[in-house]
Design a protein around this nucleic acid. Sequence first.
RNA 1: GCACAGGUAGCAAAGCCCGGUUACGCGAUGGACUGCAAAUCCAUUUUACAGGGGUUCGAAUCCCCUCCUGUGCUCCA
Length: 500
Amino acid sequence: MTLHLYDTRRKEKVPFHPAIPGKVQMYVCGITPYSPSHLGHARCYIAFDLLHRWLEASGYDVDYVQNFTDIDDKIIKIANEDGVHFLEVANRNIEDYYLVMDALGVERADHYPRVTEHLEGIINMIEMLIEKEHAYVSSDGVWFSVSSAPEKFGTLTGNSIDAVQAGGSGRLDKSDKREHNDFALWKSAKPGEPAWDSPWGKGRPGWHIECSAMSLHHFGESFDIHGGGFDLRFPHHEAEIFQSECCTGKEPVVGIWMHNGFVRVDGEKMSKSLGNFWTVKDAFQIYDPIVLRYALLNAHYRNPIDVSEQLLDDAKGNQRKLSEIYGQAIIFKEEGEALVPLPPLPSGDTTSSEYLVQRIGVIESLAEEAARALDDDLNSRLALSKVQAGAKIISEVLNSDKIDEGDTASFASFSIDWIEEIAGLILGVLPTKEIAKAVFDPRLDPRRVAIRDEVESLLARRSIARHAKDWKAADEIRDRIAEMGVDVQDTPDGVEWSLK
RNA sequence: GCACAGGUAGCAAAGCCCGGUUACGCGAUGGACUGCAAAUCCAUUUUACAGGGGUUCGAAUCCCCUCCUGUGCUCCA
């Protein structure tokens, strides 16, 4: 099956065929760095990171461009409030972006162009649009004339010019544009604002033009995939279509338009005004970044996702289980049967090799199913369920009494490759080997070593109390240990403890 | 108002494009194991598809109508 992706413009899944066979040119709208990154950003860039990884795993050579809109009204406002240069505001938020996205396992794009580094290209593009009479100069800047190409209106959203005009009436600002739908290409500088020289005096680019200019710079007149948040369809992406296609005359500028669904919190859009706003760093206080990634991949990228405690807790449990099985496979490979001696084969049962061949066949077919799921417009939820199913079988085999001692390490080795390929390389929801081992065998957790003596001595006292059937004292000690962040488990093999 | 998404078992979420087979997970219930828990394992939770029409041998899936929710039309991933 070939990769199919949903194209917002055509409103259907379409087979993906890049313009240049084997190569993919992909542009995703980046952030406007006026504040730290929030969960909506995380969802968006994780979704497109998955696309990026999957394209590469499928053998494509991907050129991934993601911009930073490092000059805009809000950045200027915050810079003025803080009394710093606007680039200081932009830079600190870009730093935050890299920090949190790296933690979330988002692989870097190939290029991160910034508006402030592409003024020349932007100005050239505006000049060309004026020349072709798609844009006009007014007292307060340069505007794109939407009525110069009315057939392009509503390409992504189905909006009609009249309807948008009606919806926008009463909110007309005091700008000097000719028609309500016209949008700014160049904004003349107001006093005290950062400004660049241009044929139309000092000013700065409008919001939409930078993406057109930067994609033109990196890819030329057209490219394969353009992504971004659902809210960017209008006006931002429709404006890009106007600018790019009217400038170059080449259409369509974009092969497939992709938009990710929104993050909601308790059923409502996450927003600062509703007070349900989470920055990524806020979320990191409670959940491991990899758990957050797992949670955000556990829904289809185009559907809205409601971030709730249940969603995150589910992800935490599933991700932990996966890590545990991965860790077990690593340890079994490294130590073979030494760690857990295998009981003898039950008589008359399937032989080890037959059993293994059969199980490996099932696991491999699950990998194919996961690949099919991703080929079907990146169905990460379904892919994750196949990964979990495969991991479950791996766990059953590793713990099975039907497998010969000599086969354990080789099966473990097969399992590690399988998990690392699909859960690690493609989905990015795997921890490091060291962490995975500690999840499986808490004795290997370095954090445990620090408190081991104290916990062990408390456990010894609890053990005495238990033998004396002094349950009250025993439970008090367990509570005290719990306060140290430790879970105590009484198992048939004795008392065990682990970090919460 | 117009536009675009959604409405699937107790919750959550795939499946819908390409009608006919199980999603997966959580929770719940019963059991094993426990001093009690926790964890784990086994089993059960086999008229789920917003409502109403239609097409079809057969519809969650295709067509029509209605209702409800969210979002966009202003900066937003």
